[in-house]
C-alpha cells in the first residue's frame, strides 16, 4: 500500500500497539506488584508505586501454609495428563486423517461436539461416577478427566498438522514393509513435533489452570494450586498480598511458555478456523 505519510502513520501505529500492550499487561503487573507488598503498603495509597518490595507473601504461602504440596499436585496432574493426551490424541488424529474406517464420522463429530460441554455440567455426574469408581479425591481421577477434556482440541490441532505431511513418505515406508502402526511411530510422530508443541501448550495450560472440576473432585491432600488459592477468597478481610502471590505462582508457568512459544500458541488458536 502506498503511504503518503509514512512517518506519522507508523508513529500512530506504534501508539496503538503500546497502549494496547499496557492494557494487556497492566492488571498482570498490578498483581505482581501487590504480591511484593506488605499489607500496610497495600492499604496506603501513597505507596502505590513506591514501596519496599518483599518476598514475605511468597514465604508465607509456600512455607507457612505448605502450598508446596499443592504445587506438586498441580505439576503432576498437568504433566501426566498432557503426556497421555498427546500420545492418545496423535494416534487418534492419525487414524482419522489416514484411514477410512467404520465409525470414523461418528468419532469425529462426537469429538468436536463434546469439546463444548461446559465443565460445570460435567462436574455433577462425574462427582457421582468417580465416587463409584473410587476415583474421587485421587489425582488419577483428575488426570483421566483432564485427558478426556483436552483430547478433542488436541485431535483437532494435530489433524491439521498430519494432513500436511506428504503421504508419499508413509507410502515409501509401507512399501519397505513397515506396518501401519510402525509407520505412525517411526515416520509420522517425529514429523509432528511442531504440532505436538502447540497441542502440549494448550493441554498443559488447561490442566494447570482448571479450577471447578478440581474443586469438586479433590480433598485437602489432593487439591491443586487454583483450588488452594480460592480458599483465600473470603467475604471480608482478604489478605491481598498472599492471594496475589499465589496468583503469580499460578500465572507464571503459562506466561513463561508464552514468551518462549508465542508462535505455536497462535498456530493453535487459529487452527481449523482460519484456514479451514
Amino acid at each position: 500500500m502506498s503511504d503518503e505519510r509514512p512517518k506519522a502513520a507508523s508513529l500512530s501505529h506504534y501508539a496503538v500497539l503500546v497502549a494496547l500492550a499496557l492494557v494487556c499487561l497492566g492488571p498482570i503487573l498490578l498483581m505482581a506488584m501487590t504480591s511484593l507488598k506488605v499489607q500496610a503498603d497495600i492499604f496506603a495509597s501513597p505507596s502505590f508505586w513506591f514501596f519496599a518490595p518483599t518476598l514475605q507473601n511468597y514465604r508465607a504461602v509456600l512455607v507457612e501454609d505448605s502450598f508446596g504440596r499443592f504445587l506438586g499436585n498441580s505439576l503432576i496432574v498437568a504433566s501426566v495428563s498432557t503426556v497421555l493426551t498427546l500420545v492418545a490424541g496423535a494416534m487418534a488424529a492419525y487414524a482419522i486423517v489416514r484411514f477410512r474406517f467404520r465409525g470414523r464420522a461418528v468419532v469425529s463429530w462426537a469429538t468436536l461436539l463434546l469439546r463444548s460441554v461446559p465443565l460445570a455440567v460435567l462436574a455433577v455426574p462425574v462427582f457421582g461416577i468417580w465416587e463409584q469408581f473410587g476415583l474421587l479425591n485421587s489425582l488419577w481421577g483428575l488426570i483421566l478427566l483432564y485427558t478426556a477434556v483436552n483430547l478433542p482440541f488436541t485431535i483437532w490441532v494435530l489433524y491439521g498438522f498430519i494432513a500436511q505431511i506428504p503421504h508419499e513418505l508413509e507410502e515409501a515406508a509401507l512399501i519397505d514393509g513397515c506396518g501401519p502402526l510402525r509407520v505412525f511411530f517411526a515416520v509420522v510422530l517425529p514429523l509432528l513435533r511442531p504440532g505436538l508443541a502447540a497441542a502440549a501448550i494448550f493441554t498443559f495450560r488447561i490442566a494447570w489452570n482448571e479450577f471447578i472440576l478440581a474443586l469438586v473432585l479433590t480433598n485437602r491432600a489432593t487439591r491443586t494450586l487454583p483450588v488452594a488459592a480460592s480458599l483465600y477468597i473470603t467475604d471480608v478481610g482478604i489478605e491481598w498480598g498472599k492471594l496475589m502471590a499465589l496468583g503469580v505462582l499460578i500465572a507464571l508457568p503459562p506466561l513463561v511458555v508464552t514468551l518462549v512459544a508465542a508462535r505455536q500458541i497462535i498456530a493453535g488458536l487459529t487452527a481449523g478456523a482460519v484456514k479451514g
Partner: peptide, 19 residues
C-alpha cells in the same frame, strides 16, 4: 504480549479484578 491475558488462569483473572 496480546496473548498473555488468555494464558492467565480464569480463577486468577477473577482474583485480579476483584482486587
Amino acid at each position: 504480549i496480546f496473548i498473555m491475558p488468555m494464558m492467565v488462569a480464569p480463577i486468577v483473572v477473577g482474583m485480579i479484578w476483584r482486587y
